[in-house]
Computed example of a mutant assay.
Amino acid sequence: MAWTASGWYVDTLRLEFAEDIAFDLELLTHKLALYTNSLTPDFSAATPAYSATNEVSGTAYTAGGKVVTGTTLGAASGFVTWDGSDVSWDSSTITGVRGGIIYADSLAGNNLIVGINFGADYATNDGTLLVAWSSSGIARISA
């Protein structure tokens, strides 16, 4: 199987709405980990958690990924939007980057929040791998 879509991990949102876990989307400890196309995200999985299985490796990339900074929540035109600062791995040599998963590193369960399919495989050779969020932000939820 492979990456076919992007999406929210619905059980993490359900746990948050039910107040079974408490995480803040604006918290500056959420991490973006990068994965190969061998990963098949299951957005409906019960209590999805960070795993290093199928995570990329390479120079200047550390397992577990990088913190997403500058996170904000907003609302406009019938959407709740979640945005943050772009994330980059400078002077990196990484191959087979197909997608990324943002997870709540501050929670004991390292709950997965959102998975992003990059649509193609990307690589660097002593260069910068930049994950630049769209003008719509990292992710959004329709009203």
Score class of each variant (00 low, 15 high):
Trp8Ala: 07
Ala45Phe: 08
Thr71Leu: 11
Ser51Val: 13
Thr71Ile: 14
Arg14Asn: 14
Ser136Asp: 11
Ala45Ile: 12
Thr12Asn: 00
Val67Trp: 08
Ala22Trp: 14
Glu26Gln: 09
Asp86Ser: 10
Gly115Leu: 06
Ser142Asn: 13
Ser85Arg: 11
Ala120Arg: 13
Ala76Thr: 15
His30Arg: 09
Thr93Gln: 02
Ala60Ile: 08
Ala132Pro: 00
Phe17Arg: 15
Thr53Tyr: 05
Ile21Arg: 04
Ala45Trp: 09
Leu130Ala: 13
Thr40Gly: 02
Ala33Phe: 04
Ala2Thr: 13
Ile113Met: 00
Asn110Met: 02
Thr36Phe: 07
Gly84Trp: 13
Phe118Thr: 07
Ala108Met: 05
Thr47Ala: 11
Thr62Gln: 05
Val97Ile: 13
Gly137Lys: 14
Asp126His: 07
Asn54Cys: 00
Lys31Met: 01
Ile101Thr: 09
Ala75Trp: 11
Gly109Leu: 09
Ser134Glu: 06
Thr71Gln: 13
Glu16Pro: 00
Pro48Lys: 11
Val67Thr: 15
Thr53Arg: 05
Tyr35Ser: 02
Gly127Arg: 06
Ala132Phe: 03
Thr128Ala: 10
Thr36Ser: 14
Glu55His: 06
Tyr35Asn: 04
Ile113Glu: 00
Ala120Pro: 01
Glu55Gln: 12
Ile138His: 01
Val87Tyr: 03
Phe23Thr: 15
Thr81Glu: 03
Thr36Gln: 11
Asp90Phe: 10
Ser92Trp: 03
Gly119Asn: 04
Tyr9Met: 00
Ala33Ser: 12
Gly127Pro: 00
Ala2Ile: 08
Gly109Pro: 02
Gly78His: 09
Ala139Trp: 14
Thr62Leu: 04
Trp3Leu: 11
Val97Cys: 02
Tyr103Phe: 13
Thr59Val: 11
Ala123Cys: 06
Ile138Pro: 00
Thr12Val: 05
Ala143Asn: 07
Tyr122Gly: 07
Lys31Thr: 02
Val80Met: 06
Ser142His: 12
Ala63Pro: 01
His30Phe: 11
Leu27Ser: 15
Leu13Phe: 13
Thr81Leu: 04
Thr71Val: 12
Asn125Trp: 06
Leu34Phe: 08
Gly137Thr: 14
Phe17Thr: 14
Glu16Gly: 05
Thr40Val: 08
Gly115Glu: 04
Ile113Phe: 00
Glu19Leu: 06
Ile141His: 07
Val56Gly: 01
Leu13Pro: 02
Gly96Ala: 02
Asn125Val: 14
Lys31His: 05
Thr128Ser: 07
Val10Glu: 09
Thr62Arg: 02
Asp105Ile: 08
Gly99Cys: 05
Ser135His: 07
Gly119Pro: 03
Tyr35Glu: 01
Ser44Phe: 09
Thr71Lys: 15
Ser135Asn: 12
Gly74Lys: 12
Asp20Met: 10
Tyr122Cys: 09
Thr95Gln: 03
Ile102Ser: 01
Ile113Gly: 00
Arg98Gln: 08
Ile141Asn: 03
Ser38Ala: 12
Trp8Asn: 10
Ala132Trp: 03
Trp3Phe: 15
Thr69Asp: 09
Asn111Thr: 12
Ala139Gln: 12
Trp8Cys: 02
Ser142Glu: 10
Gly100Asn: 03
Glu55Arg: 11
Asp24Ile: 13
Phe118His: 12
Val97Arg: 02
Gly99Arg: 11
Gly119His: 05
Val56Pro: 01
Val114Cys: 00
Ser136Met: 08
Ala76Lys: 13
Ile21Tyr: 05
Lys66Met: 04
Ala46Thr: 14
Gly70Asp: 02
